[in-house]
Design a protein around this nucleic acid. Sequence first.
DNA 1: TGAAAAATACCAACTAGTTGGTATGATCGT
DNA 2: ACGATCATACCAACTAGTTGGTATTTTTCA
Lengths: 223, 223
Amino acid sequence: MIVFTMKKATAKAKPQPPSGKTPMRTRILDASLAVVREKGYAAATVDDLCAKAGVTKGAFFHHFDSKEALGVAAADYWSQLTGELFKGAPYHRHADPLDRFLGYIDFRGELLQGKVPEFTCLVGTMVQETYETHPAIRDACQRSIFGHAREVAKDIEAAKKIHAPHAAWTAESLALHTQAVLQGSFILAKAEGSVAVAADGVAHLRRYVEFLFQKNQTGKTNQ
Amino acid sequence: MIVFTMKKATAKAKPQPPSGKTPMRTRILDASLAVVREKGYAAATVDDLCAKAGVTKGAFFHHFDSKEALGVAAADYWSQLTGELFKGAPYHRHADPLDRFLGYIDFRGELLQGKVPEFTCLVGTMVQETYETHPAIRDACQRSIFGHAREVAKDIEAAKKIHAPHAAWTAESLALHTQAVLQGSFILAKAEGSVAVAADGVAHLRRYVEFLFQKNQTGKTNQ
DNA sequence: TGAAAAATACCAACTAGTTGGTATGATCGT
DNA sequence: ACGATCATACCAACTAGTTGGTATTTTTCA
């Protein structure tokens, strides 16, 4: 009495073995990151997520009240993961906050590796589809993007005090612009199917920051 | 024998009267722009589009072979509409190509009016969801974005020859970066539910361009 | 300590409603 | 009369979410 539960040709039966003892909730969240970044929130069915995570629907709805709740949790999980990633990144070693900010930009450039769904931003993808229809997800994405920008803004603010105290722009605004360039570059990369255009965008952003801080030389400072 | 065809609470029965004699195909395309920009491609059901256009399903599938074909047609229609919009825009009056490019940026800033779904980009929204799952739509979006960038690049190229002939960056790359800033600013605006952050992004872009062309004054040149 | 009680974690099968798409017929201009 | 345009009725597959139940862990308290 074998029962075929695979109903869609697109549903790949990959039980995904990311270490056998990962808690189910985390497995579902990890699967959601992958699937949503690949096909978007709306097109990612609960069955897709379960198949990718190697989990049954019962388990899914035990951990999440609804698909929307999963969306919110995925955005929060993304905030946590990226927060840890950037917290542990090497650019924080620099003594000068401007070098830290430029190091951050370079670090973002280095993250542009692999295939498109692997380096693009989950919350940037999700908020495009959900900003009108799922306010809870929109808010979670807002927290993720703007919270991250607030962290970056700390270095920018310090750098501004030292290197450009009288500039007209605000640190917050420049941090958000940085996020906008990255998000937009991801869109172009998706349209082209290539990472090169995104790397170009990061290069333009770096040059802009060098201009803002009157650093017209190459920018390669200490060490 | 009244038949209730409204099945969803979200389906607003707006037969939408955009002039009675608009051809059906165009009505469907116009409706698609509105609905897809609001909720994305995947979440926009065929019934949604028909309801918004005031058209039956039979008419829909008479004009479009599939939902995917509608997506491609909508992207092409978007290219046509935006092409005409920018072709008729006032910034082309300027004699200096740099003024035309700066005028283009200002024009993009002026387009940031109304509610979020009204000024955001259809193809930027669609390509995020479809780049892996619907190659035909992805390609149509790619043509729209990169084709538009190619138009903008003409003025940049001419401006570069005059004002910054030895610069390291290419006109094409700067044109694409311009699109990236806009697309990314739309994402931030969606996350915030506000246009202000997008306007900030455009201001940063303008300052960058002024830097690139050594125009450190306010940029208000002839007339 | 240790067994009973109570959460918690999970599962397979099911459901009510939705989805993109179709079959067939009506209407219209020429 | 006839092809193009549109309307109605319909469908098979899919969708988010439920159900009733079992396994496992945690808590309670004698």
